[in-house]
Design a protein around this nucleic acid. Sequence first.
DNA 1: CAAATACTTGATTATTTAAGTCGGGTTTTT
DNA 2: AAAAACCCGACTTAAATAATCAAGTATTTG
Lengths: 153, 153
Amino acid sequence: MKLSVRGKYALRGLTVLGEAYGPEVVRIQTISEQQNIPKRFLEQILFDLKSAGIVESRRGVAGGYRLAAPPEKIPLAKVIRHLEGALAPVGCISERFYEKCSCPDELQCPLRSIMKEVRDAIAKILENTTVADLVTRAALLRQKPDRPVDFVI
Amino acid sequence: MKLSVRGKYALRGLTVLGEAYGPEVVRIQTISEQQNIPKRFLEQILFDLKSAGIVESRRGVAGGYRLAAPPEKIPLAKVIRHLEGALAPVGCISERFYEKCSCPDELQCPLRSIMKEVRDAIAKILENTTVADLVTRAALLRQKPDRPVDFVI
DNA sequence: CAAATACTTGATTATTTAAGTCGGGTTTTT
DNA sequence: AAAAACCCGACTTAAATAATCAAGTATTTG
C-alpha cells in the first residue's frame, strides 16, 4: 500500500473538512491554500470523493464541500480503497481488488501467505482510524509537535 | 508498500534458493522454469540481489546462484528495501528513504503520524520474517494448501 | 436580471515507473 | 576450443501519476 500524492491530498483535504464539520461548506480554494495543494488538482480529487459518497457539495457562489457523514464514520480505509485500490501489498490476496498472480500455484504460495498477514495488519489500522482521529491528532500535534527525526546527539 | 512484480519474482526466486540452500548452486534457468518467471528478467533481478550481498554466484558452465547467508539470516525487509525502497506508505516517515512532503508542517501532520503506525506494523512483520520462513511455509502449504477464497455456499 | 463565484466534466499533457527485451561480453568447465 | 552460464548496460513499450486546461452549469447577491 503506497499512498500516492493524490491520496495524500485527499486525506489532508478531508482533515480540513473534518475540522470544519457542520452544516456549513468549505471552499476548495480555502483548502487548497491552507494545505498547499494545487487547486485544479484538488478540484478533481474532491469531485471523485463525492462520487464515492464521502463528501457532498453545494454549487454556486456560496458553494463548497463538506463531509457526507460525521468524521468518526469515515474510516481511512474507505478513502484509500476508493482512491488507490487494494490495501494489500500484492493483488493476489486482495478480496476487493483481486488480481491473478503468475506463480505456479497460488494456494501453495508462501509469499502470498506472508503478505496476507501484512495486509491484515494494515487493514486493522486503517479500518479503525477515521477522519475524526485525524482531527484529534492534529489538535494534539498542534500543542506537542512530533520531534524531528534528526535530534541525534 | 506495494510489491512490484519484480519484487515478487525476487522473493519467489529466493524461496527456491532457500529450499536448495547448501554449497551447491542453482541455475537461473531452473528457477525461471520452476517459478514461471521470464529468464532474462530474473537474470537482471538476481544480479541486482548480488550487488546487495543477498546472493552470490558462480560463473561458467556449472554456474548458478546461491544464498549469501543462511536463509534464516535474510529478513524479507532487507530484500524489499533493496528492491523497492521504503516500506513506509509515505516517504515523509521513512528513515532510510526520506522524502519531503508538501504539507504545511510535517511535525504537525496528523496523516504522517498515522502512517508511521502503519509503517511500524509492516516493518515488524517483514523484519521478523526470513527466507527460512518462506521455505517452512512452502512445505506446510504443500501438505495443506490455503483454501480458496470462493468456497462460499 | 446580470454578473460573479464556485463546483462540474472531460480532455490533454508531461514525467516517471514498470516490466521486459536485446546484444554482446566474460568466465569456467569439459 | 567450444559450450554453458553469469555479467552488464542500453533500449523499448505501456501504463500510471500528477497535474493543467477549457468550457459548462448552478447559485447567490447587487
